[in-house]
Amino acid sequence: MNTFVLKLIAQRIALGLLLLLAVSVLIFVGTQLLPGDVAQSILGQSATPEAVANLRRELGLDQPAWLRYFDWLGGILQGDLGTALSNRQDIGSSLWGRVGNTLFLAFWTAIVAVPLAILLGLVAVRYQNRWPDRAISGTTLTAISLPEFFIGYLLIYLFAVKFNWFPSVSTVHSGMSLGERLHAIALPAATLTLVILAHMLRMTRAAILNVMQSPYIETAELKGLGTFRIIARHAFPNAIAPVVNVVMLNLAFLIVGVVVVEVIFVYPGMGQYLIDHVSKRDVPVVQAVGLIFAAVYIGLNMLADIIAIVTNPRLRHPK
């Protein structure tokens, strides 16, 4: 690896961090603008005015906003996410468990979905415009067009209620073995796979087809290589950059956008955690989760950029 590529990568990382800092300001300002009263929201309809007044005093909402921002940022840099307003629990300890669950589901979904999407994409190119291509495109497009809650309920109806193969409630907890966990998340992982498959698959197909027009593919064909070998060995490496971008976007979706699936399958991930705290106006939690979501998005996109740089021979070997 040469210094040029290293410099490019360093630039990307620096830009990413700068962006994250800017996002942290936006998150902080945004949460300050939320309507409603924190104390009232925490205590709900059955709050007595005394209790509301006491809580408000205790939360110390009288300090100026900029001071609270630097307190908050300083805490985060030292790994302290603060304390939840609503139940006084340390955010870090309750949040990391949720993050772990979300990553677990995202990881196993990705393990299934990404290779499957790329493989199906390669097959679709190999049999372009013939029935396998049409069948693959048709089914995956149908799956992506259906709302995810519908796919979820459909899978629950078939595999949980009718055949009783998998549980409809995917609650995972610390006492479970890996096998039990995988069994528990089978249905949400399948739902998510169906949701993200089409996007990655079609991108793979389009990117490879684009490369397939190049003269060097024609040379490979004239050399007498088999079609699948040409696609896999010669065309795909040059189509990696756009495919990686789409894969990363979908991975980010798996982490930050699966609230609906979490609710349907009662999966204790970050989405539900965030929603509960938004409705209670638990600002420190909302800020912490927002920052984690932003970090995931920025991090994965940065990774996609770096992979694109590293896999691009023109950047690796500049003239």
Binding site: Y153, A160, N164, S168, V169, I264, V266
Partner: peptide
């Protein structure tokens, strides 16, 4: 007690004998 806030998920959990 398993918290199932989605009404349809509650019924399917009962139907499949998980609760």
């Amino acid at each position: 007690i398993i918290v199932i806030n989605d009404p349809t998920a509650r019924i399917s959990a009962l139907q499949s004998g998980q609760v």
